[in-house]
Amino acid sequence: MKILIVDDFSTMRRIIKNLLRDLGFTNTDEADDGNTALPMLKSGKYDFLVTDWNMPGMTGFDLLKAVRADEDLKTLPVLMVTAEAKRDQIVAAAQAGVNGYVVKPFTAAVLKEKIEKIFERIQ
């Protein structure tokens, strides 16, 4: 299980990386926005994408849309972990094909629950 973590703040990437490790996912890579993430996703054979929304350069929302529009990536499970809390945004993310949505600040238990739920559905 190879996971890509995308967030512009290194501390948040580190927190998510740690939580994922506690859940048994040790194979993780990091990117600081959509522009760096997309080429990694295209060449890196990732199984799961965890992304923030609000980032300079390419946002997580645009990254999500780019992933869904890409023939090779369109089935990649995507979890948004973001401070964006407007109802319209959550609806838009759902319509764009997000698999899970976690609002910051979040707990380890919430992240675990959402990730497990996503994998349950895939299997």
Binding site: N54, A83, E84, Q89
Partner: peptide
Amino acid sequence: SPEKGVGPQ
């Protein structure tokens, strides 16, 4: 723009 992201509320 909500698409760009507006940060914590």
